[in-house]
Design a protein around this nucleic acid. Sequence first.
DNA 1: GTCTATAATTCGATAGAC
DNA 2: GTCTATCGAATTATAGAC
Lengths: 198, 198
Amino acid sequence: MTQKKPVKSKKSDLTRAAILAAARELFTSQGFDHTTVRDVAAKAKIDPAMVIRYFGSKDELFALAVEFDLRLPDLSKVPRDAVGATLAAHYFGLWEGENRNHGLPLLMRSAASNEFAAAKMREMFGKQVAPAIAALVGPAQAAACAGLVASQLLGMAFCRHIIKLPPAVAMPRDAMIKALGQTIQNYMLPRGIKPSEP
Amino acid sequence: MTQKKPVKSKKSDLTRAAILAAARELFTSQGFDHTTVRDVAAKAKIDPAMVIRYFGSKDELFALAVEFDLRLPDLSKVPRDAVGATLAAHYFGLWEGENRNHGLPLLMRSAASNEFAAAKMREMFGKQVAPAIAALVGPAQAAACAGLVASQLLGMAFCRHIIKLPPAVAMPRDAMIKALGQTIQNYMLPRGIKPSEP
DNA sequence: GTCTATAATTCGATAGAC
DNA sequence: GTCTATCGAATTATAGAC
């Protein structure tokens, strides 16, 4: 008797997870092009052929490695004058908090030279970030506001965590959150103008 | 009679320049890894072997392709309350002005996934940007200020020109210069505090 | 499911004729 | 200076034994 869907497939799942974790680490530290299927297999302690067997190709493995959820807070529940600080703090939690085994560093590092990653970043921004901002500042100013906020937050990530520019690395976390929070607050809700105003 | 250093070596220089220009274009659009010596040779309409003969190796060719001068204005000659706008305008001139055949787009695109390019960017920042800022705001606040300014300017370049995030691309140049100028001004000279104050 | 062996490309760089 | 021919190494992906 054949089982269509076995209830237990522990080993397979563990192997899959090990491959994916190894791939994400190596893609992040070495980039897509300089990470070989052999490297991933070695780190996951399995045979290179298994990587292809489980994921089909190197490209499909990469596509799964960059998938993740930003878990943005609900900005409508945040005091209006604390929106900037909240976003800045959330962003640093993503980069320097306890749970950092997500795909953001990989996506950020890859997006500049990998069109698939760039497209993924635009998609994530459109689906997760833009709506949250539009709901707060209204549709008229949403685009410009979102572009400015993204440029500041991604820019700090680029300087501090990707290329490791010394002054950006040296800056204390609190000072940075304060400075970025003020900037973002000003981009989103300048001078207390209500979003519904003309 | 042999000439040690011929006064005229037009052809060689033209070939070198053609190779370098082709390399910069291809490295920028395809990235270092996906640009082959054969690609560069084809674009420059010469033999692939000549690329190596003229530049030694692909790595050395890349090193020359990323070399350039930011040509920052002398900030000491700019009114203090116009420093932010001046820097923002200069930055956009680099990215969207008439003379764009420099290495900045290539450096920016490569730095995230190429350690050599990242080091070059840190070096350029340290030699060209940091001193200009330090001379204006004083040594005490120079590092933090430089890190913040860099994060905002590089972040907009990343969003608007590298990954082409729709809201950042759509924003009119004037509106962006105004917004970034205000932010930079605030990072550099907040509330009119003089740089020499404790 | 797992591994060995290798197919099929592709690339950077070199040797040597002219 | 320039081109032809090719080396040697590395890569993804597959075929097939066990």
